[in-house]
Design a protein around this nucleic acid. Structure first.
Lengths: 356, 356
DNA sequence: GGAGACTTCTGTAACGATACAGCACACGAC
DNA sequence: GTCGTGTGCTGTATCGTTACAGAAGTCTCC
């Protein structure tokens, strides 16, 4: 309870002024003589008054100065993924500049607590959520400004993100152009195991796989040209387990290029390849996605799709703040770029097996 | 403004019931006939009512269901440091279990906005702040429950953290026991460049250096036995720049053991050593601090001090929640453990240069 | 048929703050 | 002496919600 805590009234009485004068002492010091202000602060200190209660202020003003952020599924994944962290960093950075705070909401946990319903925020940012996630419905029910990033697309709400399928297709064309004809694609499963709700949970990842596959088909390759592999989690051990069978195939059946739907996964592939003595890029080309910081310093430096998640975070926050101010907010057009570094090259020359 | 938004009253009038009935429909459905509840929800839907406003609820109840977290200095560093992220993850995880939300507050930015003063929270967690940081004073002025982690120590507030100097001393004794006599210590600068306020800003890092140095002195080594090096930032390039001069010394003057005050730094050292062709651990022993996930999978696996920042995050959150509930909260006694892995070994046998 | 218990709903009084209008007073100008 | 202008402070009316007490109405039981 707040019972016993001093309030504006308590302080006002003690200082011998009106409640409004106390309020002004904190919020509009220029409307006050220095002597009165001093008197008020002294009374406040004596009573142990901690300043005007933000809950009261927020109710009265109708603004909280806070933006709520919902991140994809389990927080562990969110914090473990550098891309997610970069996005969050961008959001935090933009909000900090505007003096707004960031309320990080759990999308799971005891549902009885309904964190979304209790969140004192002016707007929500949804990042990489599936459209069927219950939290999304909770957010929409609040009827506050919403911005989505990555997914889902919601009609009428600004969206920040790239066309993943298209970017993945560009990766495919890059590899095809180098002469590759046997491919692997590495991703993470659509849903954490034992998840009750069905359906795709990492729409971005799926779109990347889809776009890559489609581009190969468009180039006239048969479906067998692409082998799909799933890692249980993002950590390197799991990646190694997932790709080892593929990389242990005889060279004539092994993919010459591997597309990982995330840089973290791609870095795991580099490790696994090194472990198995498969040279990158001469015997295996590897492409990632996101262009996280480690991508540029990996050995070899990783060819990847750059999409500046930090900037996307900033954008999302900026849009949210515009909506709060009642200004129009349009989804920005973002163009991811393929950054060709040292992990892709022409496939090894085929030993005889010549074309007619 | 909230102007025009429907409220409990609006909905009550439309549904032909009292305001309390509407409130109960949302918060105590069991106190209500199903028919009435349905009627209320229909009216709410027609009016576009988003449910009871949490600001009003929070004011009335005197609880917000939110804990504020202040992280060390610039957010970039916080998000870039896996240890920090692990701590935050622990906090978020514990809070999610309790159905509480996490308000991430910027410690810098436009000071006019005073995010700490406006934060609607039930308690604060301060992580790795310097005692002289203005945000600390702002937090104390709020007179809410506070827990600190890592630093600073504040009398009367529970503290979560280890004795850094002592842990570093254990590292020193481990290395001394292996036979090392020439040491390097790598850390990051105490303050970001251009920072206006003076004084140490990474007290934990300083304590580690200090404890290490002291343990060497206690063992009777002269000050020259330890060379201190500072990396500008945590990224590997900066680490390489910082340690290269040290590692390029002739073998007879090069430290045989390097203590990095952070695992991230230590991993950078491993990279730099590999680049210069210096074998670890046979020619150089490396020790880190924190035991982040990558430490175990590095090559070679990193000897480091494990302090489970995730658990510390959980602890801090749990203590904060206890304080909010008016229960006593005692600082836990935490014992970091030295995890000896593959990056430390006896120094190379000295070539002749024998002892008497 | 009346007492008691239960269900379902209502009225009142805060929770702590701020916006806005306005009042008293001092001061200089004419 | 009246008027206009500022400064410094006060009073009132909300902001949207929930705790609590209690009022009808229904049901049960003897």
């Amino acid at each position: 309870m707040t019972h016993g805590r001093p309030t504006l009234d308590t302080v006002a009485e003690r200082a011998g002024v009106s409640r409004m004068t106390v309020s002004n002492a904190y919020n509009r010091p220029d409307q006050l003589s220095a002597a009165t202000q001093e008197k008020v602060f002294r009374a406040a200190a004596e009573l142990g008054y901690g300043g005007p209660d933000p809950a009261g202020r927020s109710l009265r003003r109708g603004r909280s100065g806070t933006v709520g952020v919902l991140l994809t599924e389990r927080l562990p994944y969110a914090f473990a993924d550098p891309g997610m962290v970069a996005f969050l960093h961008g959001v935090a950075s933009e909000l900090a500049d505007a003096g707004q705070a960031l309320l990080l909401l759990p999308t799971e946990g005891n549902p009885e607590h309904a964190p979304v319903r209790n969140a004192i925020v002016d707007a929500f940012i949804l990042c990489s959520l599936a459209a069927d996630e219950p939290a999304v419905a909770d957010v929409l029910a609040r009827r506050l400004p919403v911005v989505t990033a990555g997914s889902p697309h919601l009609t009428g709400t600004p969206f920040v993100g790239i066309d993943n399928a298209r970017a993945a297709a560009e990766v495919a064309r890059h590899l095809l152009g180098l002469g590759h004809r046997r491919f692997g694609v590495l991703t993470v499963p659509g849903r954490p195991e034992g998840s009750p709700t069905p359906g795709p949970n990492r729409p971005a990842q799926r779109a990347r796989v889809q776009g890559f596959r489609q581009a190969l088909a468009d180039a006239g390759l048969p479906p067998e040209a692409l082998t799909g592999v799933e890692a249980a989690t993002h950590d390197r051990a799991a990646v190694a387990v997932a790709v080892r069978p593929l990389l242990r195939r005889p060279a004539s059946h092994r993919p010459t290029a591997l597309f990982a739907t995330t840089d973290v996964l791609a870095l795991g592939v580099l490790d696994a390849a090194a472990e198995l003595g498969i040279a990158v890029p001469s015997r295996l080309s590897v492409v990632g996605f996101d262009d996280i910081a480690e991508a540029a310093t990996a050995r070899p430096p990783l060819t990847t799709v750059a999409q500046s998640l930090f900037d996307q975070g900033r954008s999302a926050a900026r849009l949210a703040l515009r909506l709060v101010d009642g200004q129009p907010a349009r989804s920005p057009r973002l163009r991811p770029t393929l950054v060709v570094r040292g992990s892709t090259a022409a496939p090894p020359a085929r030993p005889t097996r010549g074309t007619p």
